[in-house]
Amino acid sequence: MRRAYFKNNWIAALMVAPQLLIIFVFFYWPTSQAVFWSLTFEQPWGGGNEWAGLHHFRELLTDDLYWQSVRVSFVYAAGTTIIGMGLALILALFVDRQLRGYRQYRVGMIWPYAVAAPAIGLAFRYIFNPDAGIMNYVNQVWDGIWDPILTGWHAMAMIIFAGAWKNIAYNFIFFLAGLQSIPRALVEASAMDGAGVLRRMRDIQLPLLTPTFFFILVINITDSFTDSFGIVDTMTNGGPARATNLMVYKIYVDGFEGQNYSSAAAQSVILMVLVILLTFVQFRYIERRVHYT
């Protein structure tokens, strides 16, 4: 712990004031408003609000459309997380062998981090379009086998693919950093004991990567719940027939297009609780994080 401090607490107050002000106005206030609105009948654009209790939550939890949205959100979360993490892990393990071209491979895997979600969405909407590009060709060979515009699970597969693609770079950066923080002595010792490359991956590197793995897992799941708007909005608009109507997209549609603020607020609160629960899980694993050095 630090021992040397400055004495002038007025300066300290001035230093922290701007941030406290901003997070009060744009974080704590809206968050508490969301809770308040979810418990009242909120009129669009002000006016009296009447106490509603848990009415909106009851309504949501008995609404099939809401459960459908929860279901597709979990499918999307599972799909993007498994594919995005799996591919990133394999790539990181092999990039970490540091063969020739190591640095070129690394840049090649990192840059997609910079691509905006709507740009990814638009690009994959073109690539997976049944009437243009390569999928058109596939549809010529096998007559009309691919149609994300009309078939729900095709659309879901398409947004999962785009979402996974978006996350690979981020996951890769963390996996590679995790692998490189494993002491070389351990890997070298096992090599001397006669363990081959793949054996070392399985018995040394993967087990020691567990903390990074759990950290990335939670980040990916949280991210797929909160940061999927850009992809859904540019690729499917939640369709066809709500097959890709993810929770965060439904909040937008109900709140801003349907002007149903109370229901959107209640949905936000449920999503918040979900994200907070995930964060607690993450903290548990961060607490347990192994330090190798």
Binding site: V16, Q19, L20, I23, V25, F26, F27, W29, P30, T31, Q33, A34, W37, T226, D227, F229, V248, I251, Y252, G255, F256, Y261, A264, A265, S268, L271, M272, V275, I276, T279
Partner: peptide, 24 residues
């Protein structure tokens, strides 16, 4: 306390509190 006040904001991204943030 101030540190925790700030730190907690890491938990909830803008997207999940979007409707009331718009009102603000």
């Amino acid at each position: 306390p101030i540190f925790w006040c700030v730190f907690i904001t890491l938990m909830l991204p803008l997207e999940v509190r979007i409707v009331p943030t718009y009102a603000v």
